[in-house]
Computed example of a mutant assay.
Amino acid sequence: MRNRDKIFVMVVDDHILMREGLKQLLELEEDIEVISQAGNGEEALDKILQDEPDVILLDINMPQMTGIDVLRRMKDLGLNSKVIMLTIHDDREYLFETMKIGANGYVLKDSDADSLIKAIRNVIKGKTYIQPSIASMLVDGMNKDDNEQDDEVKKIESLTKREYEVLMLIAEGLNNKDIASKLFISEKTVKNHVSSIFKKIEVNDRIQAAIFAFKNNIKKI
């Protein structure tokens, strides 16, 4: 029987040194245990079904079956493991794709240990985690023409003060329960605010809302 005080992690990367390095790094933490590893997407899916990890660290670029393919297949199968994408600076287009599919976190491969550990602990609590430098990468160079800028301003101005506060907290990775606690309102009220925000800023999920917030300096990076 599993020790529920621990977070059980699976590492998926085609480089064995990367996998072993992450395993040694993570297991310095008392609440994290690496229970399995995989070197390609097909092997990963087999082991996810077998081991049912709490959190999967998933490399985007792999031979045979990419991390994107693995994530998409996991969603098709209804698997509940949280997924943190491991990426490099050149993966911008892939990142947007994984956002649409529904990854829970995004961390650069060359990030420090604290970022990765924070990501794992955040996603297991139902939060999302976007490493700040990744958010910067995603919005960097997004030149908006005057019309688009006006549209963005109108979207922001359409938000109530409370919706603006909720959007900032979404961008920080908080889930509805945590937002409710922080703002001293009910979880149902938060859910209503989130639905209204999504409609007003024309996004479909929390990751897209967070990127909107980063892009428009609603949350400082």
Score class of each variant (00 low, 15 high):
residue 149 Q to Y: 05
residue 156 I to G: 07
residue 110 D to N: 13
residue 151 D to W: 00
residue 64 Q to H: 04
residue 107 V to E: 10
residue 94 Y to T: 00
residue 175 N to P: 12
residue 212 F to N: 08
residue 140 D to Q: 08
residue 102 G to K: 03
residue 30 E to A: 11
residue 128 T to L: 09
residue 189 T to P: 02
residue 194 V to R: 09
residue 34 V to S: 15
residue 32 I to Q: 09
residue 135 A to V: 02
residue 76 D to G: 00
residue 65 M to Q: 08
residue 30 E to V: 07
residue 49 L to K: 10
residue 212 F to E: 05
residue 59 D to E: 00
residue 170 I to T: 05
residue 24 Q to R: 14
residue 117 I to N: 06
residue 81 S to H: 00
residue 115 S to D: 10
residue 38 A to Y: 10
residue 177 K to T: 12
residue 121 R to A: 10
residue 54 D to Q: 08
residue 195 S to K: 14
residue 57 L to T: 00
residue 107 V to I: 07
residue 102 G to S: 05
residue 192 N to V: 10
residue 182 K to N: 11
residue 36 S to P: 09
residue 175 N to H: 05
residue 186 S to K: 03
residue 105 G to I: 01
residue 199 K to Q: 12
residue 172 E to Q: 15
residue 80 N to H: 07
residue 138 L to G: 12
residue 147 N to L: 09
residue 29 E to T: 03
residue 40 N to Q: 12
residue 161 K to W: 09
residue 20 E to M: 14
residue 213 A to P: 09
residue 196 S to D: 10
residue 136 S to V: 13
residue 119 A to M: 01
residue 67 G to W: 00
residue 112 D to W: 00
residue 164 Y to K: 14
residue 71 L to S: 09
residue 78 G to E: 08
residue 89 H to W: 09
residue 4 R to K: 15
residue 152 E to T: 01
residue 189 T to K: 10
residue 167 L to V: 02
residue 124 I to V: 13
residue 200 K to E: 08
residue 174 L to N: 12
residue 188 K to H: 08
residue 134 I to L: 13
residue 115 S to K: 02
residue 5 D to R: 11
residue 157 E to K: 12
residue 176 N to V: 00
residue 96 F to K: 07
residue 221 I to A: 09
residue 200 K to P: 11
residue 31 D to C: 08
residue 51 D to A: 05
residue 213 A to Q: 05
residue 94 Y to R: 02
residue 183 L to F: 03
residue 162 R to L: 15
residue 161 K to N: 15
residue 156 I to D: 03
residue 98 T to I: 13
residue 42 E to Q: 07
residue 157 E to V: 12
residue 50 Q to R: 10
residue 199 K to N: 13
residue 155 K to I: 01
residue 157 E to F: 07
residue 90 D to R: 06
residue 27 E to Y: 02
residue 124 I to S: 03
residue 16 I to G: 06
residue 33 E to V: 13
residue 135 A to K: 01
residue 58 L to E: 07
residue 114 D to V: 11
residue 113 A to V: 08
residue 1 M to L: 15
residue 192 N to T: 11
residue 142 M to E: 13
residue 144 K to I: 08
residue 125 K to W: 00
residue 86 L to I: 01
residue 120 I to E: 01
residue 159 L to G: 11
residue 42 E to M: 05
residue 147 N to G: 06
residue 210 A to R: 08
residue 164 Y to A: 13
residue 147 N to E: 03
residue 198 F to I: 01
residue 143 N to H: 04
residue 41 G to P: 04
residue 194 V to A: 06
residue 101 I to F: 06
residue 57 L to S: 02
residue 193 H to N: 14
residue 13 D to A: 07
residue 180 A to V: 04
residue 107 V to H: 07
residue 79 L to A: 04
residue 207 I to Q: 05
residue 15 H to A: 13
residue 209 A to F: 08
residue 163 E to P: 03
residue 136 S to D: 15
residue 48 I to G: 05
residue 216 N to S: 07
residue 46 D to W: 05
residue 194 V to D: 04
residue 180 A to Q: 09
residue 170 I to W: 04
residue 186 S to T: 15
residue 133 S to M: 13
residue 221 I to Q: 06
residue 150 D to T: 08
residue 152 E to R: 06
residue 21 G to V: 09
residue 130 I to F: 04
residue 93 E to G: 00
residue 126 G to K: 04
residue 25 L to T: 12
residue 203 V to H: 14
residue 113 A to T: 08
residue 73 R to A: 07
residue 74 M to C: 11
residue 1 M to A: 15
residue 121 R to Q: 07
residue 61 N to S: 10
residue 85 M to I: 02
residue 73 R to E: 14
residue 34 V to E: 13
